[in-house]
């Protein structure tokens, strides 16, 4: 089939997981009055084009951002107060970068926080720094937000192209496919096979309801009931090691494996990491780890794994004398006479 789903671009209102069209403007301030006032002003001007999301603490904002990410929605601007108990605005923006790297970051501070805010500009690559009070919004707030929205629309976010999954609402394999994509951070939209959109997609791909799930890759290729290995390859996960020989093979992409790959690569060993499903291991599926050293506000296992993966890749690039430093594969390692299922490998030479 061609690129993208066929038919009109409207959303199926009955699909609970189908994302709405509007990107979000997120605002946070620990003073509920201020938080409400900022949100009110934002809604008045942008409410028709953007969804305004309001929070009163850093952790609450992160929860909201995760929820948005989970639903495949986009965030255009994050407007954060700096001085908040528990988590400062700068700390929040730093963590938010993991979830929505393209979102524009604006700090809204009182005059007394100026120094701290300026110092933090480098840490979080702040896009703008706005002084309270923001009244009248027409003069102080809207011009800033207008400029940020314009910059956001102009960025080549290349809104990570989405895969589409069509399956039975209650099918084990459909659920597995969605989890595989989610854990590998491949954005996707999900349509039940009996929904209007699902039916149209099945017809367009000439697939029938007996062979589900149907996966349409971002490139427009239709895969009928793919196994994990095929899926990994077609959605662009690296599946083949680029060398025949390594100093070190790490089997497994959880915390221990990612740590081993990172240290191996950073110390100059030609290293490959082999993983069956997705990086993160059991910890990667944890919604919140509160007692891991160095993260006083907790961190989700998925975020921790993604940060570790990026870090390992960076070291791999730095010490790489060859081409692509990162490849992975759906394959199972075998020693002697072992068995075989899908396993993904990630190379960090």
């Amino acid at each position: 089939m061609g690129s993208g789903p066929p038919g009109p671009a409207e959303e199926d209102a009955l699909e609970p997981t189908a994302p709405p069209v509007r990107a979000a403007i997120v605002t946070v301030d620990d003073d509920p009055g201020v938080s409400r006032a900022v949100a009110r002003d934002l809604r008045r001007r942008y409410g028709d084009r953007y969804r305004v999301v309001r929070a009163e603490s850093g952790p609450e904002t992160l929860d909201a951002l995760r929820e948005l990410a989970l639903r495949g929605e986009d965030v255009a601007v994050i407007l954060a107060d700096h001085r908040m108990p528990g988590m400062t605005g700068v700390e929040l923006l730093e963590q938010a970068m993991d979830l929505f790297p393209a979102a524009r970051r604006v700090l809204l501070t009182a005059y007394a926080d100026t120094d701290a805010a300026i110092e933090a500009i480098n840490v979080v690559d702040l896009d703008h720094y706005l002084l309270k009070p923001w009244d009248p919004p027409e003069e102080k707030l809207y011009p800033v937000v207008d400029a940020q929205l314009e910059a956001w629309r102009a960025t080549d976010r290349r809104r990570p192209e989405e895969a589409v999954v069509v399956g039975h609402r209650w099918s084990a394999r459909s659920s597995q496919v969605r989890e595989f994509l989610a854990r590998n951070r491949v954005p996707y939209r999900w349509y039940a096979s009996d929904s209007d959109k699902g039916t149209r997609l099945l017809a367009a791909a000439q697939a029938d309801a007996a062979t589900l799930p149907l996966v349409v890759t971002p490139g427009g290729e239709a895969l009928v009931a793919p196994d994990d290995a095929t899926l990994a390859e077609k959605v662009g996960l690296a599946t083949t090691p680029t060398e025949a020989f390594y100093d070190l093979v790490v089997v497994g992409g959880g915390p221990a494996g990612l740590s081993a790959a990172l240290y191996g690569a950073s110390e100059g060993l030609r290293t490959v990491l082999v993983e069956r499903t997705a990086t993160g291991g059991q910890a990667g599926q944890s919604s919140r780890i509160d007692n891991y050293l160095g993260f006083p506000d907790g961190i989700s296992g998925g975020q921790l794994a993604e940060r570790a993966r990026r870090q390992a890749v960076r070291f791999a690039r730095r010490s790489s004398r060859h081409g692509t430093p990162w490849s992975s594969s759906s394959r199972e390692p075998r020693a002697g006479c072992g068995s075989a299922t899908g396993r993904r490998s990630t190379r960090t030479p």
Binding site: A229, T240, P241, E243, A244, F245, Y246, D247, L248, V249, V250, V251, A256, G257, A260, G264, V272, V274, S329, R331, E332, P333, R334, A335, A340, T341, G342, R343, S345
Partner: peptide, 15 residues
């Protein structure tokens, strides 16, 4: 180390 798809890689050490 051999994989399910029949390919293999060699290495000095394994973790």
């Amino acid at each position: 180390m051999r994989f399910g798809d029949g390919s293999s890689i060699d290495a000095h050490a394994v973790i």
